[in-house]
Design a binder for these strands. Structure first.
Length: 420
RNA sequence: GUGGGUGUAGUUCAAUGGUAGAGCACCGGAUUGUGGUUCCGGGCGUUGUGGGUUCGAGUCCCAUCACCCACCCCA
């Protein structure tokens, strides 16, 4: 019986895995430069955690969550996003007591039952940042700065940072009420999707792509006009701080985050050239979430980004992502005696941190050299019965063809050449 | 969940309804101790799967699965 990988998932094969490691390490380094520390939570949680935090009406909860129950009929879900688990852990482990400011980042797989598409998978890998403990607009900018600085360092150009504010809970409610008033007269003329959105998430009416819906939204109220004084000032300060940090952005009033817990700042990093799924990262402030899932009322902000899309973008720009390891040397062993006698030497080299490739199944010199070439090793170590007898090893530079005879000692002589 | 496209060797692709092929890759060999070039040799693959039409199906029809793209949604 042959088996297939589950739909919407993928294997990271050796020819690519070094790139993933490179990018993940790179993110870890940048995050720690800003004082953020890694947190790892389980890939499944009690389903209710997501239902409560993301919102019962959100698509993520309604149709995209992998739910399952265990043998004791407890209902769990594979995590569809990273923020709720981090906040759960924050509350559960009383991280707020240790410090009033908590800086966390995470890396790991998320799961969403979606129809796969370019840049969209059912199991996908995210990196994320969460700052917990202050409503200061500086932190909104800091969190955004991490992402933008990182992408810039990786060499990514043609990025767009889009910014919006959805206000606090009361501003948002005021605005949604205004939107409903605005659309209500034409409700019966809107597409069926919009009719649903009218009740659940009226903001979505603003970016419906059905042509017949478009005319009805000219003159619609804008969220930014419905911010109260405090929210308005907060947003202005975020903008100012970004400008002071030399981070370019555009304000896009139609940015809506999919999850219910967002307040105030919402942002998205767009890279054109990814197809329809052109969002590299997105996030925002969630001042009410911690209290909502059992903690104190503590403001926070964060974002998450997708590694698959980032890798697509980086490769599209022709950016080199580390290099696949190649052997320092390839050991060519001729004769049964040599093969048996060489083990201590092979072992010694590896203990000295030399990457030596060796294949005991190949015996013809031609095949061995061919293998040495394709391995990418710069050097071949050639040992036959006579060399073993004389305690010598031939070290051949595969590029120049130069060959020298060195003592077959504990590896010191060879290491000296290899590392030079 | 809805729509469109595509499924042939490890891979990239051929094959007017009439015997399934090629390039690349891979393995071996060209006096069993010095490679990358060249030459020679090596492939029966349930043509994704299951039905149907036909004397005959990789080719036409239906179903199913998978992949790609888009809607939706988002990372």
């Amino acid at each position: 019986m042959k088996y297939n990988i589950p739909r919407g998932t993928f294997d990271i094969l050796p020819k690519d895995s070094y790139k993933w490691q490179f990018v993940m390490d790179s993110f870890r380094k940048v995050a720690s430069r800003f004082g953020y520390e890694e947190i790892t939570t389980p890939i499944f949680e009690v389903a209710e955690l997501f239902e409560r935090s993301s919102g019962e009406s959100s698509d993520v909860v309604q149709k995209e969550m992998y739910r399952f129950s265990d043998r004791k009929e407890r209902t769990f879900a594979l995590r569809p996003e990273g923020t709720a688990p981090v906040v759960r852990s924050y509350v559960e482990n009383h991280l707020d007591v240790l410090s009033s400011r908590t800086k966390l980042f995470y890396i790991g797989p998320m799961f969403r039952y979606d129809r796969p598409q370019a840049g969209r998978y059912r199991q996908f890998y995210q990196y994320g940042i969460e700052f917990i403990g202050s409503d200061n607009p500086y932190y909104d900018a800091e969190v955004i700065a991490i992402e933008m600085l990182w992408l810039k360092e990786l060499g990514l150009k043609n990025l767009r940072l889009e910014l919006n504010s959805v206000g606090c809970a009361t501003c948002a409610a005021d605005y949604e009420a205004a939107l409903r008033e605005f659309f209500r007269p034409n409700l019966d003329k809107l597409c069926p999707d919009c009719a649903k959105r009218f009740d659940i998430k009226p903001r979505r009416l603003l970016d419906c792509k059905v042509p017949s819906c478009k005319p009805f939204r000219s003159g619609a109220p804008a969220q930014l006009d419905y911010l109260d004084a405090h929210c308005k000032e907060h947003f202005a300060k975020v903008c100012d701080t970004l400008t002071a940090m030399d981070i370019a952005y555009t304000i896009n009033p139609s940015i809506v985050r999919g999850l219910d817990y967002y307040t105030n700042t919402a942002f998205e990093v767009i890279y054109d050239g990814l197809g329809a799924q052109n969002s590299l990262a997105g996030g925002g402030r969630y001042n009410g979430l911690i209290e909502q899932i059992g903690g104190k009322s503590i403001p926070a902000i964060g974002f998450a980004g997708g590694f698959e899309r980032l890798l697509i973008a980086l490769e599209q720009e022709g950016i080199q992502l580390g290099t696949r390891p190649v052997p320092d040397a390839y050991l060519i062993c001729l004769g049964d005696k040599a093969r048996a006698g060489i083990m201590p030497y092979l072992n010694a080299l590896r203990q000295k941190d030399v990457y030596v490739d060796y294949d005991p199944d190949k015996s013809s010199l031609k095949a061995l050299f061919k293998a040495a070439d394709t391995s990418g090793a710069r050097f071949a170590l050639i040992v036959g019965d006579s060399e073993l007898e004389a305690k010598q090893v031939n070290l051949k530079n595969l590029q120049t063809g130069e060959q020298v005879s060195l003592p077959l000692d504990g590896g010191e002589a060879v290491v000296q050449v290899l590392k030079s």
